[in-house]
Amino acid sequence: MSAGFKGFKEFLFSKQSLRYVCSTHFWGPVSNFGIPVAAVLDLNKDADLISGPMTGSLILYSLVFMRYSLAVTPKNYLLFGCHFVNELAQLGQGARWVNHHYVTGKTEEKATN
């Protein structure tokens, strides 16, 4: 076994690492990653399916929790990363929603046909 692998193994199975993996500072953000994963997968779906108010709410939600993740002690960078990814995905969805409803006018075309 190489020294680097042995050191990593000792770190991975140390009391501090195991305590972190068994805490809500780890499992909360891990379970919360379903939101940004779903948002990223939804970027390929039809823009008619996007809810503007919900997307706006999720943009604000992620901004608040990005700030919260850095305000708690100890700082929760995993939670920050989760909400950072969600923020980017929701901003993409919001841009698609604005483009679909206000820029291209596809909603008006469907109503007249």
Rank of each mutant, 00 (worst) to 15 (best):
V85C: 09
W97C: 14
T107Y: 04
N32A: 13
N113S: 09
E10T: 07
A47H: 09
G52R: 00
Y68D: 00
G105H: 10
G52T: 02
L88C: 08
P53L: 02
G4E: 05
G7W: 06
K75W: 03
S31T: 15
T104N: 13
A71T: 14
F80K: 06
A95R: 01
L58I: 12
T24H: 00
G56A: 09
L70K: 09
I35G: 13
P36L: 01
G4P: 13
S69H: 11
V103A: 03
K15C: 04
S62W: 08
H25L: 05
F8Y: 08
T107L: 11
K75C: 02
L18P: 06
M66S: 03
Q90Y: 11
F65Y: 14
F11V: 05
L63Y: 06
L70R: 14
G34A: 11
D42P: 11
Y68L: 06
F26I: 02
G4S: 15
C22E: 11
E108Y: 12
A111T: 10
L70S: 02
W97V: 13
S31I: 14
S17M: 05
Y102H: 05
V72A: 04
A47Q: 06
I50G: 10
N76Q: 04
E10K: 14
S62K: 08
G105V: 12
Q90E: 08
H101A: 10
G56T: 04
F13L: 08
A38R: 08
T73E: 14
G52I: 11
M1D: 01
K6G: 06
E109Q: 05
N32C: 14
L60A: 15
S69Q: 02
V85A: 11
T73D: 13
V72N: 04
S31M: 15
H25K: 15
K6A: 08
T107K: 03
Y102R: 08
S62A: 15
D48Y: 13
D46C: 11
F65C: 07
G7S: 06
K106N: 12
G92M: 03
T107C: 03
C22V: 04
V64H: 07
R67P: 05
K75G: 00
F11C: 01
V30M: 11
H25I: 04
I50E: 00
G56K: 06
D48I: 15
D42V: 06
P53R: 06
T73K: 15
T55V: 03
L41R: 06
K45T: 10
L79F: 12
Q90G: 03
V98A: 05
E10Y: 07
